[in-house]
Design a binder for these strands. Structure first.
Lengths: 155, 155
DNA sequence: CTAGAGCTTTGAGCGCGCTCCAAGGCAAGC
DNA sequence: GCTTGCCTTGGAGCGCGCTCAAAGCTCTAG
């Protein structure tokens, strides 16, 4: 199944969030396209559309631990890459670095912190929803302006 | 017609962007709830959910000109408020201050710059759409995590 | 009349999230 | 062997968008 297709399924599933497909679809989305060999900092950066600087920065501030090869070069195993996928996803949706640091510290403290992690995620979910609502309004306002300027309507 | 209702109509209209309702609905959305007396900086700040500091800053950097009353206090007329509504909408959807300055300078240069303004708006529309897409993916990822933690599914 | 809150200005300060610099090591090609 | 380019580290620098400080004026309540 192609990534695009999975993505579309996932997006569809959001419309009906009770669908048991969500977990399955995302399990595959998340694990797809990750080579199971260790990756270099540049490779991961390309994968995440980030800069190597940023990945090193995330490591420095304790968001992730990364192994080194015999020469001292970073080697990102699958778990590390998966964590970075999650981290960048959260960053892209506006979660502050500070919160991510807290989240990661909760993960490090073990299963007992699952309720607090869950609480964070629920709050963040609301934040994302608010953002989407705001953006939708901004999109409408932009469409409106475009219309007043006689621009093309949306395709 | 209540603002909430207008808003819903507007959101619906986005689904079918060719609808001639968009302009009408937003005309009313934009002009609704604006008292036609001049407003103080604090009043406008409350209206826009911004700080007076921010409004003064926008003025300082040339995004808007604001009248003064006999005592030297800022008085925002309807046009000024409407411009600020637009500016904050664009800011909320991530348009950089620098671009807004350019846009405003185009407005100041008159009707001849309409094509370039239109171009900016079309580009920004795409940017907003990309953001919404990104946020939708982040929302899905968050839902997924919530599900793995056994949290409630979306209401 | 006076206290206190809010307004004015210019200029400086700050939090965030990178982003880059300097000095040096490792790997691959000529 | 040497060059070229990416890697390492710690620390410094930076762009953005506010946000606040200082010094002084104005309005309102008591």
């Amino acid at each position: 199944m192609a990534t695009e297709e999975l993505l579309q399924k996932a997006l569809d599933a959001i419309g009906e969030p009770d669908s048991p497909l969500i977990k399955e679809v995302f399990d595959r989305l998340v694990t797809t396209d990750l080579p199971d060999r260790p990756m270099s900092v540049q490779e991961v950066a390309d994968l995440l559309d980030a800069s190597p600087h940023t990945l090193r920065y995330y490591e420095r501030i304790g968001l992730i631990e990364v192994d080194r090869d015999a020469s001292g070069y970073r080697t990102y195993d699958t778990d590390a890459v998966r964590r970075l996928v999650f981290l960048t996803r959260m960053r892209l949706s506006g979660m502050p670095i500070r919160d991510l640091q807290h989240y990661v510290s909760l993960v490090d403290q073990g299963e007992g912190t699952v309720p607090e992690r869950l609480e964070m995620l629920l709050e963040h979910r609301d934040t994302i929803r608010r953002q989407i609502r705001q953006l939708t309004l901004s999109l409408a306002a932009t469409e409106y302006k475009i219309a007043t300027y006689g621009g093309e309507t949306a395709p």
